[in-house]
Write a protein that binds this DNA or RNA. Structure first.
Lengths: 337, 337
DNA sequence: TTGAAAGCGATACCAC
DNA sequence: GTGGTATCGCTTTCAA
């Protein structure tokens, strides 16, 4: 069960067993074989706690995510996870469900685990936490929140650019009455999209009207927000959603009420999750490359031998506009609901 | 940073600090307060590795999942996770992507972590692994695979029952030419649904024809399998999918080819994931309660003070048939594609 | 009610 | 090349 047991069985010292197990190559071939044999026979698994306690480090990467239910976050997480495994790191995840308290306790847990690095894929953030992370002096990478620092890399998406393209496109199609469906308006990266929409519309389509409706970040939330929007007065000609996940909920609500997309109302998403292609109608959206984000997260945490991105930097990811079937020329006659 | 630092600052011994931190209530009030103060001032986080090394146990639950991308598994996982957190356990997940090698290495990792319990939410399984887990003598719970044992609980879904209901229903609607879309046919719980379909059809609809197509467990896989099915000859009047996730891919492919669901072809799913309600058309499916599964998993691992389910048992979860909009009376005229 | 000290199971430095 | 052993940070008797 323990190193010592293996050592005894192989007739060597624990130090030697440790060397073999860690691939330190000063061990003689025959000794190595003998040790390996003992390991196999005893079905020995190293105690990872002892290992990281003794070693000081921990081949474990921590990942904290706001909402694993949203396929966008899940995709990013999965990329980080697979990079970690590929490099022999374990991953421990925590889901904050957009709650600051959860975030605090997750961070403490990660720190307690002495993770080798910490990726925070979040929308919410607490200033005190940023400080605590800075003090921890382990590599940290933020996605969408925080700011770069000594040991902190920041990765963010150029939301403004993506939203501008949506605004331009809808304006071209004649939309001047727009509904914006979102969640957690107080969160910075979420709010960024809303501001960007309002700003760009003010430029390309002065006088355009935007009404905002918020609910939870879920299929159900999208549906709920759409319901409120529809109940609140004359329907807009287009609905811009803060992400694809909620947009799919919006589509459902419209369909249920016999409102045709895009003939009656155009709908746009954001993220380009796989589902946006499989829903009906396929969503016009903005592609945000989760794989690039995931790889960047990982490599800012664990720089490989090559000259990889160094902490303390900021990376900006550029999104890409994608037209599919959920947008069309604005109706000119009012929609009777 | 360490217990000792806190102890020194509070003017007590490490033993006392440890007692305070673990809520062992023999500590005098004033001492406790003094320690707490020191902890706060130093922003002390216990080193969890040292803690579980010393304590022998580990407030960590391991979860191994086949495919986190499939919302079904994700839902189960999330329930387990939230139960764990509620009881002060951490969770470490591993995704096997249906690969046996991944499974083996994940199990070893979990064992190395000395997890308090291990939940295996899998479709694949290796006999040697079952043995290793039995030997590990920690509480283990299998979902869908393995068999109960000394320290092993098994939870399974009564797939047969759910599939029978689908078969009966489709037969009532006049379907006698059926396509079955699945993934990883070799895996037991997956195969169970296929066999159940063939068996029940043989009973309720002798002479009915079933053609099977397999691809990956993903939206894309469902679409791909549907494409092959359609290309393989005259279209069936109904397509039964092994799960909702793939069914949504199937719907996409049919839509793309101008085939109407359910007028031209009926489609059924399995699981009743949230998405099955939000796709178009909403799927007729079989509800499998992920929350019940998740809670059962957790409570078989960590029995609470009450007389909870004891390891060594088997729990069977009953699914429930749900009719929505993707099924209708079978076409009587052949479909021209 | 508190302190001293013996582990827990590995790593890594220092001898041989 | 290999072995001895201090050490990591905490829990947990055993005494006081």
């Amino acid at each position: 069960m323990s190193l010592e047991a293996v050592a005894k069985r192989a007739g060597v010292s624990t130090a030697t067993v440790s060397r073999v197990l860690n691939g330190i190559s000063v061990v003689k071939g025959t000794t190595r074989t003998r040790v390996m044999k003992a390991v196999a026979e005893l079905k020995y698994h190293p105690n990872l706690h002892a290992r990281s306690l003794a070693g000081g480090r921990s081949r474990t990467v921590g990942v904290i995510v706001s909402n694993l239910d949203n396929p966008f976050f899940l995709d990013v997480y999965r990329t980080v996870e697979s990079d970690c495994h590929a490099q022999g790191f374990e991953v421990v995840v925590a889901n904050t469900a957009y709650s600051s308290e959860q975030l605090v306790s997750s961070v403490r847990l990660m720190l307690g685990r002495r993770v080798a690095g910490l990726a925070a894929i979040l929308s919410e953030i607490d200033e005190a936490i940023v400080q605590e992370l800075t003090d921890a002096k382990i590599p940290v990478v933020f996605f969408d929140v925080g700011r770069p620092g000594e040991n902190i890399t920041k990765i963010r998406v150029n939301y403004r650019k993506g939203v501008e393209r949506i605004a331009e496109y809808l304006t071209q199609l004649g939309h001047r009455d727009i509904g914006f469906i979102t969640h957690h308006m107080a969160l910075e990266p979420v709010n960024a999209r809303q501001l960007a929409l309002i700003d760009s519309l003010a430029v390309v389509s002065p006088g355009a009207r935007v009404r905002v409706f918020a609910s939870s970040d879920s299929l159900e939330g999208g549906r709920q927000a759409a319901r409120e929007l529809l109940l609140s007065g004359p329907a807009p000609t287009a609905i811009v959603c803060v992400n694809d996940f909620m947009a799919v909920g919006v589509l459902k609500e419209l369909r249920e009420r016999g409102i045709r997309v895009p003939e009656d109302i155009s709908v746009t998403g954001f993220d380009n999750i796989k589902l946006s292609e499989f829903c009906y109608p396929a969503l016009t959206t903005v592609h945000v490359p989760r794989d690039v984000i995931g790889h960047t997260l990982f490599s800012s945490l664990i720089p490989d031998a090559m000259g990889n991105p160094v902490p303390g930097r900021e990376h900006v990811i550029d999104p890409e506009f994608m037209v599919r079937d959920s947008t069309a020329v604005a109706r000119t006659t009012p929609l009777r609901i």
